[in-house]
C-alpha cells in the first residue's frame, strides 16, 4: 500500500475531463452558497446590515452566471460522451452493469467484516456510477426548474411554486450528497486524505489502481502489453 513517488501511474482523468470537473464544482459551489442565501432566517440575513442590498444584487448575478456555466458544461458533456472517442469510452465504462450489484454486495460485506478481500472493481466503482448518474438526475431538475423561475413571467404561478419546491429540494439533496458522499470519498477518505489529487494532475498511482479498480488495472495491463507487442512486431517488420 505504499504510494511511492517513483511509482508507475495511470491516467484517471484527461485534461478535458478535469476542465469539465473544475467548471462543474466551482459553479456548483457558487450556486449552493448564493442559493441558500435565500433560505437564511431573518437574523442571519440581518447580519449583512447595510451591505445587504448590494450583496443581494450580486447574489442574483452570481447565481445566474454560475447557473449558465453549469448548464453549458452539462450540455458540453452530453456532446462529449457521444461525439468524442474519449467521451464514448467514458460513458461505456460508466454504464451500470449486473456486476455492479455483485461488487456492491461484496464490498459491503467486506467492509462489515464478512469477507476476506475487497472485490476487484472496474474503472468506475458502483459508488462512482451512482454519484455520476445522480448528477444527471439532479442537474435535469435544477436546470429545468431554474429556467422556469428565470422566465417566471411566462408560467402559471402555481407551476412556479412547484418549480421552487423541486429546485430547493434537489439543491438540498445535492448539497448534502456532495458533502457526505463526494467530499468524504475524495478528501476525508483515509486512503487519500487530505485529498485525491487526480482532479488536478489526472493521475492514479499503480497501487491505488490495483486496490480500488483491480479489473480495470488488469485490463489496462493487457492493453499496454498488446500495444507493446504490436509496437515490437511493427518495429520488427520495419527492421526487416
Amino acid at each position: 500500500m505504499s504510494h511511492g513517488k517513483n511509482e508507475r501511474s495511470f491516467v484517471r482523468l484527461t485534461k478535458s475531463q478535469r476542465i469539465q470537473h473544475v467548471i462543474l464544482f466551482v459553479s456548483t459551489g457558487l450556486l449552493i452558497i448564493t442559493g441558500f442565501m435565500l433560505m437564511g432566517e431573518r437574523w442571519v440575513i440581518e447580519m449583512f446590515g447595510s451591505a445587504g442590498n448590494e450583496i443581494f444584487y450580486w447574489r442574483g448575478i452570481i447565481h445566474r452566471v454560475a447557473g449558465v456555466s453549469v448548464t453549458l458544461v452539462c450540455l458540453y458533456h452530453l456532446g462529449y460522451i457521444v461525439l468524442q472517442e474519449e467521451g464514448r469510452s467514458w460513458i461505456k465504462d460508466m454504464l451500470p452493469r449486473m456486476s455492479d450489484a455483485t461488487h456492491a454486495s461484496q464490498n459491503v460485506s467486506y467492509m462489515l467484516g464478512f469477507r476476506e478481500t475487497r472485490p476487484k472493481m472496474e474503472r468506475f466503482t458502483y459508488m462512482e456510477k451512482i454519484e455520476y448518474f445522480s448528477v444527471y438526475f439532479g442537474m435535469f431538475i435544477v436546470i429545468v426548474t431554474g429556467i422556469m423561475m428565470w422566465t417566471e413571467e411566462y408560467w402559471p404561478k402555481f407551476w412556479l411554486d412547484i418549480a421552487d419546491a423541486f429546485h430547493l429540494g434537489e439543491a438540498t439533496l445535492a448539497a448534502l450528497a456532495i458533502i457526505i458522499g463526494h467530499i468524504f470519498s475524495v478528501h476525508y477518505n483515509p486512503h487519500v486524505y487530505p485529498m485525491n489529487k487526480a482532479f488536478i494532475d489526472g493521475k492514479i498511482s499503480e497501487s491505488m489502481m490495483k486496490e480500488e479498480h483491480g479489473l480495470w488495472y488488469e485490463r489496462e495491463l493487457e492493453r499496454l502489453a498488446a500495444e507493446e507487442a504490436e509496437a515490437t512486431s511493427e518495429g520488427n517488420r520495419n527492421n526487416a
Partner: peptide, 23 residues
Amino acid sequence: YKILIVAVVGGLGFHRLADLYAT
C-alpha cells in the same frame, strides 16, 4: 425530498462509516 434525503444521506453515511471500519 425528505424521504430521498434521509435515504441518500443515510445510505452514504452508512457506506462511509463501514469503509472507515474496514480501513
